[in-house]
Simulated scan of single mutants.
Amino acid sequence: MSSELIKARSKISSIKSYLKQDKLFPAIVSLHEAIGIIVRTPLIKHEKDEFARSLDSALDLLNNDPGFRKICPMVLKHTEGQEKELLTTLKELLDDLQGSAVAEAQQMLQALDDTKRLQLARGGELLAQGKIKDAKFVFNKLVLQFPDDTDLKYEISELFLRHERNKEALQWLTEALKDFPESAHLYNRVGMVLRKMGEFEMSEKYYMKAVRLSKDDAGLFFNIGRLYIDWERWEKVDEMATRALEINDRFTEARKMRAFATKKLKKTEEQA
């Protein structure tokens, strides 16, 4: 997932926190900016599905917020393919609000985003220096400040993965899944981490949850194929590579995977 899409998810995740703090303007600005990113970014199907669920949840929070109902008499709805219309509605709503308040909200959002970036970078530096406890302290403090930011937890997990701290990465991915239990992307990442930890059966369970949410992601089936390679289940490797190629017949690595599985199966038959 691109950095822009991660940014969009983070903005959607922050809406709940802003409304809890009675910060309506930042919540609306966050939603507007997130939809703007979604509109201008090409999405594959499972990403569209994830964002559709996230937008529905965010709009439900806004529509039921007393402050929002006072300034917006209509119920905002998200319809697939009509994101531009929703973006226009939000823009008109923001234009109706005081310009200075909107500008202030945008400045606050930028300041908060800068804070997250700086602290994530600081935590990454500490991990690179082997100062694991110090890094954990920075990340824990950051999440206390942004408790509803699912993508912040995901980004922390990625930093731990980058430094081969699989156990900690799994912990943060699990926390992110508690916030967003319908994310195929998160189930996929948990499956990958568990594979690296040698927990093949658990890895398979998480991958299958990802498949139930996203059946058209060639990369997901390729990742499951990598699990079965480590597990030495060659028929399953062949099956997953084939499914990946059915979705994307130009997937060179999946074709190589299937050829590898065929060779292993043939060798197994010869030894039988």
Rank of each mutant, 00 (worst) to 15 (best):
M1L: 11
L5F: 06
L5G: 00
A8T: 01
S10P: 00
S13L: 00
S13F: 02
S17R: 13
S17W: 06
Y18A: 10
L24S: 03
P26V: 02
I28R: 08
H32P: 00
E33S: 13
I37L: 12
P42T: 00
P42S: 07
L43Y: 07
I44G: 01
K45N: 11
D49W: 03
E50Q: 12
F51W: 02
F51M: 07
R53G: 04
D56N: 11
A58Q: 06
A58L: 08
N64E: 15
G67M: 04
F68P: 01
K70Y: 08
K77G: 04
K77L: 14
K77N: 12
E85Y: 10
L87T: 00
K91D: 15
L94F: 12
L94G: 02
D95N: 15
G99E: 12
G99N: 05
S100L: 13
V102Y: 08
A103M: 09
A103T: 09
A103S: 13
E104C: 06
A105Q: 07
Q106F: 10
Q107W: 08
L109S: 05
R117P: 03
Q119Y: 14
Q119M: 10
R122G: 01
E125D: 15
A128T: 12
G130C: 12
G130T: 03
K131H: 12
K131D: 09
I132G: 02
K133Q: 13
D134K: 15
K136A: 11
K136C: 11
V138F: 03
F139Q: 00
N140D: 15
L144I: 02
P147R: 12
D148M: 07
D149Y: 05
T150P: 04
L152E: 00
S157V: 02
R162F: 01
H163S: 05
E168I: 04
E168Y: 07
L170G: 06
L170E: 06
Q171L: 12
Q171R: 14
T174A: 07
A176W: 02
L177H: 07
K178C: 03
D179L: 13
P181G: 14
S183Y: 08
A184Y: 06
A184C: 13
Y187A: 02
N188M: 11
R189S: 14
V193N: 04
R195F: 03
K196Q: 15
M197L: 14
G198W: 04
E199M: 09
F200I: 01
S203N: 08
K205A: 13
Y207K: 11
Y207E: 02
R212L: 12
K215C: 05
K215S: 15
D217M: 02
F222D: 01
F222E: 03
L227T: 09
I229A: 07
D230H: 05
E232H: 11
V237R: 01
V237I: 09
V237M: 06
M240Y: 03
A241M: 06
T242P: 01
T242D: 12
T242K: 10
T242Q: 09
L245K: 04
D249T: 01
D249M: 07
F251Q: 05
E253D: 14
K256T: 09
A259E: 15
F260H: 14
K263H: 14
L265V: 09
K267D: 14
T268K: 15
T268F: 10
T268D: 15
E270A: 14
